[in-house]
Design a protein around this nucleic acid. Structure first.
Lengths: 112, 112
DNA sequence: AAGCTATACCTAAGAATCTTATGTAAACTA
DNA sequence: TAGTTTACATAAGATTCTTAGGTATAGCTT
């Protein structure tokens, strides 16, 4: 990874996948979870995440619930029904893309 | 794939990988080769490819040779020494990223 | 001969998605 | 009390793509 950043396009899918396994999560939690799951290899920046969450909400894929915990606000996001469907679709898309990419990366030097 | 397009960031790596197996290729040939290799699943648009090739050339990763074939010009690109090294590096990067992504995509629903 | 498709290059406007930098504010830690 | 962590946010700029053109030759069909 260049500076442990993302290949553009995968962030939304990652967020949706995490939410599909977690009922509800808040932004900061997502950044930490990804760091933990990937052992620091992937760092989701807040400058990328928050706008992405707002967009997903605007598209009706996420619902928001604001809770005050330890005197600090947290905005919890959860998948809507539409969001759950979109998650499945995006996951398929990404899997397909990775398979396709695999087909190219696995070519022998000096193929056709 | 959405409209059989690319996840941003992978195009350059794909081009370098193809050139690492082919000694020299020209732009149009690359678009056709990718279409063929991926059975039409991935289509590299010329609007993306040509600027990418020019950039790789400007960075010293590719050398160009213009040949006239059948009374039409072709600009053949081949990896420089620097380009060969960068190809290995980019391929490692992408492999690592895909592994990392795999780790997230393979999470069971209801994990930690 | 005209018209269509394929070959082969190109660029420019705009969209999308990111990085980097910055801001606010409370809680915790040394 | 100063620095780090938690927790949200936005805005400028970079990068990389899509879309939509443009030029020109070759080959095929009608």
């Amino acid at each position: 990874m260049p500076d442990s950043n993302l290949y553009k396009g995968s962030l939304t899918t990652i967020v949706l996948k995490l939410l599909s396994g977690n009922d509800k999560m808040y932004g900061y939690e997502i950044t930490q979870k990804v760091k933990e799951l990937t052992k620091g290899k992937l760092k989701i920046t807040e400058g990328a995440l928050y706008p992405a969450l707002h967009k997903l909400e605007a598209e009706g894929l996420l619902d928001v619930e604001v809770l005050k915990v330890n005197n600090r606000l947290r905005k919890y996001y959860k998948l809507t029904e539409k969001g759950t469907k979109e998650t499945a679709s995006k996951l398929n898309e990404l899997e397909e893309f990775m398979e396709t990419l695999r087909g190219i990366l696995n070519l022998n030097p000096k193929f056709g």
